[in-house]
Design a protein around this nucleic acid. Structure first.
Ligand code: FES
Ligand code: FES
Lengths: 152, 152
DNA sequence: TGAAACGCGGACAGATTTGGTCGTATACTA
DNA sequence: TAGTATACGACCAAATCTGTCCGCGTTTCA
């Protein structure tokens, strides 16, 4: 019913956590999982997906782990969700290659596709940086201008 | 993964269908289901929910059926989805009464709630009328001004 | 007055998706 | 070479969604 999967949730949490610890070179999946009390192995697989999508850089071996591949401002929530949950369409008919069996009769697909694009746009305008708790001491650069203000 | 359930899809289709046939007093669930080739009994239950939510008016007995309870412009997509799928939160943690077990550690719930509100706003700004194929012959009243333009 | 057409609502089974675990292979470091 | 970490697939369990069935109440009409 139009909600993110837990996996996407976890992914966002992990990325936010990484964004808030820029000093550390790499953070293991277990470290992040422990910090939030989520299943380590599950998070590992999520981070692997994000790595394959180029959002994270990974490093095996001791003191290895994951690090953001780009600046937190350059990673949008949309990319994260898309990477973890696959392409999302608000219309339920995504089975098969294109459209479901009743595509010809269904008349709301086209209008809803527009809604879909709008939501995608909102998600695209939100970066990990926007989610994170960056100490906005003074004179914040205000580089990011999300469609949705997340300011508190 | 952030998509509507088929039920919500069906519900929107049905309402759109009703909006496009304003002359008929009432339309049976079976009629609508046949028009789109969707399971009649399933659609019936959906329409029942919409009736209980006050979006439709029902009439039992022969030649009975359903009709919009209000003008199509006054029924938002949000109401329909909310009525069928229940309250939706973009964050997956909706179990129990309030928040999931890891609410304290989860740090993205609050920022995502804002995204949630934005999406809800988009959905609220779209009416069944906007979805329907109203012959906008000339000088359309342009009474509705959805956040998302659905014009073709 | 009774049958037919229709809405109402719960129970329920099958299909699908999600959440999570396990095992093993691979890569890197000390 | 021992230890730590990622990579990846198979797999299972739980939750959800989809769809069907059946009995009941209501309205219309012959
Ligand atoms: S439900 Fe499949 S095309 Fe709309
Ligand atoms: S995942 Fe439950 S509070 Fe965020």
């Amino acid at each position: 019913m139009l909600n993110l999967t837990k996996k996407a949730d976890y992914g966002l949490m992990a990325l936010k956590y990484l964004a808030e610890h820029p000093e550390t070179v790499a953070m293991s999946a277990k470290d992040i999982a422990d910090a939030y009390g989520i299943p380590a192995q599950l998070l590992a697989k999520i981070l692997q997906k994000l790595t394959k999508s180029g959002l994270l850089k990974s490093h095996a071996g001791m003191n290895g782990g994951y690090a953001l591949a780009r600046d937190a401002r350059e990673i949008s929530a949309y990319e994260v969700i898309h990477s973890i949950d696959g392409p999302f369409f608000i219309t339920s008919c995504t089975k098969g290659t294109n459209g479901c069996e009743l595509t010809p009769s269904c008349t709301i697909k086209e209008p809803l596709a527009r809604v879909n694009e709008t939501i995608a746009g909102v998600l695209r305008s939100i970066s990990i940086y926007d989610l994170s708790d960056h100490e906005q001491t003074a004179g914040q650069s205000e580089r990011s201008s999300p469609l949705v203000s997340l300011a508190r």
